[in-house]
């Protein structure tokens, strides 16, 4: 396998310093919908100008460059161990070049490793597939919004939420309401229904890699996504919690099998700086999207 270290650095640069086109369009559309002269419109305008500036100067969109999360699909024959080594090296290089802020802190000593590597840091998940290509999706997940990500256990009597999709809807709306003023709205929600506590959180984050305009193949989930997006925005929290029409830019939901005894709902909250980027390696050729 060829050495992809420099390509991973480029992938990180793209993710940290630019927003995906669908996010940018969603923010522009949101700005047009807000009342002219309102705080909500002002916030979105500032966000969009900040994005332009970061792109032009190749500087991080936000000072918190987040946890790098890599989801990798690879064909038989590629060594996950080698890829992991290259990614870790790339994280250190990207930190040196100031695409990433040093963000990996030793939980015991409190010491920052200084190069964005550490125990299970960055996060890397491997999935073998049949395609003869390597596909790498990268998400930079900020800390402020991670702190408002949450998990519910159904039934939840306080919210009158039972073990069904309507119960899921109720707890997710509660999570959006609780996140107000924190987590830098407008955001995108990744929702996972079922699984154990761990797999559920992982699945909820993986939803965030989906493009905003994709359609969920599961009709029930597609309906839920649409309804949550609409009702989440009815809460009126608005950009930065200033009030307004735009609280959410997208909702993406997935389901997992669960134990009969447990019914978890995980909500991964992603801020407006929804920094994701993709790279594909086919033979010698590397492309980015």
């Amino acid at each position: 396998m060829q050495d992809l270290t420099e390509n991973f650095v480029e992938l990180i640069r793209r993710a940290a310093t630019d927003l995906p086109a669908d996010m940018q369009q969603a923010l522009e559309k949101a700005k047009a919908q807000e009342e002219s002269g309102s705080a909500a419109e002002g916030a979105l305008d500032t966000i969009l100008r900040n994005v332009e500036m970061a792109r032009a100067n190749a500087t991080p969109i936000c000072q918190d460059t987040g946890t790098p999360i890599f989801e990798i699909h690879y064909p038989l024959g590629v060594s996950p161990r080698q890829v992991t080594e290259q990614i870790r090296k790339a994280c250190a290089v990207a930190t040196e070049r100031a695409y990433l802020r040093p963000n990996a802190v030793d939980s015991l000593s409190g010491k920052n490793s200084g190069d964005n590597t550490g125990i299970d840091y960055p996060t890397i998940h491997f999935h073998e597939w049949d395609e003869d290509a390597i596909q790498v999706d990268l998400l930079l997940k900020g800390g402020g919004c991670e702190n408002v990500s949450t998990q519910y256990k159904l039934p939840d009597s306080g919210l009158g939420a039972g073990r069904d999709l309507d119960g899921v809807r109720k707890v997710v709306l509660d999570a959006v309401n609780k996140a107000q003023g924190l987590g830098c709205a407008p955001g995108v929600l990744g929702v996972a229904i079922g699984g154990d506590r761990g797999s559920s959180y992982v699945k909820s984050k993986q939803q965030l890699l989906r493009p905003l305009d994709d359609a969920n193949p599961e009709p029930e989930l597609a309906d839920l996504e649409e309804r949550l997006l609409e009702e989440g925005n009815q809460l009126g929290i608005g950009p930065m919690g200033f009030g307004g029409k735009t609280t959410l830019l997208g909702v993406k939901a997935g389901a997992l099998h669960r134990l009969p005894a447990s019914f978890f709902v995980s909500v991964a909250y992603m801020c407006w700086a929804n920094r994701r980027a993709q790279m594909r390696v086919v033979g010698e050729e590397v492309t980015y999207a």
């Binding site: 939420a161 509660d174 003023g181 009126g236």
Partner: peptide, 20 residues
Amino acid sequence: SLHDKIKSQSNAKLAELIGS
């Protein structure tokens, strides 16, 4: 405080949406 105002509005709306 805009924060207090938005919070009480969104709390009321949430109660309406989840019927509690």
